[in-house]
Design a protein around this nucleic acid. Structure first.
Length: 454
RNA sequence: GGCGACGUAGCCAAGAGGCCAAAGGCGAGGGUCUGCAAAAUCCUUAUUCAUGGGUUCAAAUCCCAUCGUCGCCUCCA
């Protein structure tokens, strides 16, 4: 299997540290808001990739964090006049709801910054001991000049960045590139006691500390949006490798950004579309089709046309799956013949090449087309088995969409009540009997007719 | 200003030296089916890969230049 590694800038053969187990860390959301479609991309794509690794026989330990100590959370908390913890808890819950509806499987671990304060402090103390950190007031900074390979991940060199006009000058720092490990607290901010005074962790330190605690000093894959490469991941890498003197992460995977009208979708720009809205309007399957039909590293445009297109494309597969089930049922076995073996090999070949999901989907569309035009029942069975198997990592629902079933039953009840009004009881009983066979129970109550699933 | 990515049919999107006169999806046009409508299905839809040079027996794929778009350099997935 080959993975594009941001660190080397090329595709590399994937060799996990342990031949059977893959350890993977994905940067999760800062919980101050409902997640938007841009946030959903890494969540969906890397979850699908993780499941593909499982499909390929690896056990995967998958960690995705929540950043629940942050300026933006504090700001929202202050506006609402509540404790930041309330905000964090609310949006952690919000994330789980959305992720679940998107068909994202829970990670092995979902650590939160607030549960790692002790480990973070120890981490910083160690850095101080090794002279990679210095204190200014009650702030602690990482000394970039002490870490010679700073810039390797993001392919920049420190002197270029220093001369760049956009690096903010902070009189506290020895070097504009130095970044904060621990922030002294200001009034109205959450704080924890520390050797440097009351304060809270800086942004980058949490991922280092959590991953070190949960996955060890070295692990296989670190993933996230490509807007995190610099400074977030560069800084994480610097502090962690400074501490351990070991290679921290072997493969860095970064997804491309989602844009709206040629501009990045981002909370600060304000052009966001929440996952919750998108789920309501387009549904889980359309969103997954949209995200998987372009390679994860490429930028992708969000628009309602794109979403409608994805929805139509998805239903093409779903309809055929439904049709196959009608023709050959659910209970059958197939023998793994040449055809099935070839298709599986083809699927693995394209996905082993840096998780090329657009190609994977085209294999499925080809099969679907083939099955329709030949009408061969054995072939249908094979295709159904294959697609169901691959769906382990694609994560679509091929069950028929039953969201309008309520309206449909209401319509039946209306027809039945019209018959009752006409005293056509043969007709009304017929309808009740049919509904009952479908598992729907009818009760004629004084206030009207109600129904429920038996 | 620095660093990086990208530019393939009406639109979306694979392909990364010969299997490409370029997958797949959406859309569009035509046929079949049909009381009407819809659905479904079949067929058609890029001699060409931003532009201009170059390397090579061979380039959408490699190199150089130009134009254009986007991302990062500040919070960001």
């Amino acid at each position: 299997m080959k993975i594009y590694n941001t660190l080397s800038g090329q595709k590399e053969e994937f060799v996990p540290l342990n031949p059977n187990v893959v350890k993977m860390y994905v940067c999760g959301p800062t919980v101050y808001n409902l997640i938007h479609v841009g946030n959903a991309r890494p969540a969906v794509v890397f979850d699908a990739f993780r499941r593909y690794l499982e499909y390929r026989g690896y056990s995967v330990i998958y960690v995705q964090n929540f950043t629940d100590v942050d300026d933006k959370i504090i700001k929202v908390a202050n506006i609402e006049g509540v404790d930041p913890k309330v905000i964090g808890d609310r949006y952690v819950a919000g994330y789980f709801k959305d992720a679940c509806e998107l068909g994202i499987q829970p990670a092995t671990c979902h650590p939160r910054t607030t549960n790692f304060i002790e480990q973070i402090k120890e981490f910083i103390l160690e850095l101080e001991k090794k002279h990679f950190a210095y204190q200014r007031g009650s702030d602690v900074y990482f000394d970039v000049s002490a870490f010679p390979s700073y810039g390797t991940l993001s392919h920049r060199n420190p002197s270029d960045m220093r001369s760049g006009a956009r690096v903010e000058i902070n009189e506290n720092k020895d070097d504009p590139l130095d970044f904060v490990l621990w922030k002294g607290s200001k009034a109205g901010e959450p704080k924890w006691k520390s050797p440097w005074g009351d304060g809270r962790p800086g942004w980058h330190i949490e991922c280092s500390s959590m991953s070190k605690t949960l996955l060890g000093d070295a692990f296989d894959i670190h993933a996230g949006g490509n807007d995190l490469i610099f400074p977030h991941h560069e800084d994480e890498r610097a502090q962690t490798e400074a501490l351990t003197s070991k290679k921290w992460v072997n493969y860095w995977m970064h997804n491309g950004m989602i844009s709206v009208k040629d501009e990045k979708m981002s909370k600060s720009i304000g052009n966001i579309f929440t996952v919750r809205e998108a789920l309501k309007i387009y549904g889980k399957n359309a969103i997954r089709m949209y995200l998987l039909s372009k390679h994860y590293r490429s930028p992708i445009e969000f628009s309602s046309d794109r979403m409608e297109e994805a929805k139509t494309a998805y239903s093409r597969i779903a309809r055929v799956m439904e049709e196959i089930e009608k023709k050959v049922g659910k209970d059958f076995r197939i023998t793994e013949d040449e055809f099935v073996k070839d298709q599986k090999a083809k699927m693995i070949e394209v996905l082993d090449d840096d998780f090329n999901t657009p190609q994977a989907l085209s294999i499925i569309f080809d099969l679907v087309k083939d099955v329709i035009s030949t009408g061969n029942l054995e072939r249908m069975k094979s295709v159904k088995v294959l697609v169901d198997e691959w769906n382990y990592f694609l994560g679509f629902d091929f069950e028929p969409d039953r969201k309008n079933v309520d309206d449909f039953i209401e319509l039946e009840l209306k027809l039945r009540n019209d018959a009752r009004m006409r005293k056509d009881y043969a007709q009304s009983d017929e309808i009740r009997k049919k509904l009952e066979e479908l598992g729907i129970e009818i009760m004629d109550l004084p206030e009207g007719t109600r129904w429920r699933w038996k």
